[in-house]
Design a binder for these strands. Structure first.
Lengths: 166, 166
DNA sequence: AGCGGATGGTTCAAATTTGAACAAACGATA
DNA sequence: TATCGTTTGTTCAAATTTGAACCATCCGCT
C-alpha cells in the first residue's frame, strides 16, 4: 500500500475510454433489447448460454458462473424467464439439490427472433468500428483479463502467489 | 431486419470475452472499493471526474453525461456522497436552475486515500496483463466505440445517415 | 450406518438504477 | 415584455442486484 505505480497517460486514457465505452454500450444494448423483446441484457445472456449448452439446460450454479451473476441474481432472473415461459426449472436427476434451467421451445424462438437486432447493435457500435486486427486484439486482451480474474482466488490480490504452507 | 450479418467465430469470441471480462472486472473493482472505502464504483467515478474538473465542480447534467448515468441516478449518488461530506451542492451563479456538485476537501482526501488500491486492481487484472501495444490498441478501440455511440443520435441506428430533408 | 464439513438454491432486506412525470427557470421571438 | 418550447434537476414507483442467512442434500471417513 506504499508507493503506488500510477497509470501512465496512455494507460489512464485506455482505462477511462474502456469504462466509458462499456457504460455507453451497455446502455445501447439494454435499450435495444428492451424495445425489441422486453428482455434484459442479463436475460438475453442467460438464454444465449442455455441455447449453446448440450441439451439446452444447465445447472443454476454453473449458469450463474458463466453469465457472471450472483446466485440470488440468477434465481431471480430464472424466475422472470419462467413467468414468460422461456425457461423451465427441472430437478437434477443426479443431484436432488440441483436445479436445471431448461430453455423451452418458446425460449428458442424468442432468442432467434431477438438475436438479429442484438447483433446489429453489437456490430454498429463496436465490431464494425474496428479492423479485423483490432477485433482479434480485443479478443486476446479480454481473454487474458478473464483468465487473470478467474485464477486469482477470492478477493485478495498480492504480488506474491499464496505460500504453499499458508 | 431481414438477412442478418452474423458474427464470425472470432468476432463472437471477442464479444463474449469482452462481456465476461467486463462483468468480472466490475465485480472486482466494486468489491475492492467497497472494502477499502465503502465507495461504489459509480461514486468513485464521480469523485474522480470532479477532481479533474476546473474548480473541482461540475453541473449535474454534464457530470451525468460524463460518468454515463441517468439524471436521477446522479441525483441519488450525489445525495449519498453529500451525506458522507465528500461532495457539496452549490447553486449555479449563471443559471438559477443549475446545481453545481463540488468536491469537498474531505472528498479530495478520500479520493487520494482510495486511488492507490483502485489502481492496483485495474493494473492487476487488466493493464499489467497486456503489452504496451495492446494497451494502446484497447485505447484506440474503446475511443472509436465511444465516438460511434456519442454521435449516433437517440436509439435509432440505420445503415444510412439521416436524410437532410427528414 | 452415521458424522461433519462443503455445496446448491432460495429467501430476505437493503442498495442502486432507470424512465416518466413535474416544477422552475431560460431564451428566442413576436 | 408576454409566450412557447427547452433545459435542469428532483421525486416517485418499479425493476434489478447483491450478500447474508438458511435448509436440504451430498460426500469422504470412521
Amino acid at each position: 500500500m506504499k508507493d503506488t505505480r500510477w497509470l501512465s497517460e496512455t494507460e489512464l486514457d485506455a482505462w477511462v475510454a474502456y469504462v466509458t465505452a462499456t457504460h455507453l454500450l451497455e446502455r445501447r444494448v439494454e435499450e435495444q433489447l428492451k424495445a425489441a423483446s422486453g428482455l434484459t441484457h442479463a436475460q438475453y445472456e442467460i438464454l444465449a448460454k442455455l441455447s449453446l449448452s448440450p441439451a439446452r439446460r444447465m445447472r443454476m450454479t454453473e449458469l450463474a458462473r458463466q453469465v457472471v451473476v450472483s446466485k440470488s441474481g440468477l434465481t431471480y432472473q430464472i424466475g422472470q424467464l419462467e413467468k414468460r415461459g422461456l425457461v423451465e426449472r427441472t430437478t437434477c436427476p443426479s443431484d436432488d439439490r440441483g436445479v436445471l434451467a431448461v430453455l423451452t421451445d418458446e425460449g428458442v424462438r424468442c432468442l432467434e427472433r431477438t438475436a438479429p437486432g442484438h447483433v446489429a447493435v453489437v456490430r454498429a457500435f463496436l465490431i464494425d468500428q474496428l479492423t479485423p486486427e483490432e477485433v482479434e486484439t480485443m479478443r486476446r486482451i479480454m481473454t487474458k483479463a478473464t483468465a487473470a480474474m478467474e485464477s486469482a482466488s477470492g478477493h485478495a490480490f498480492r504480488s506474491a502467489p499464496p505460500a504453499p504452507g499458508a
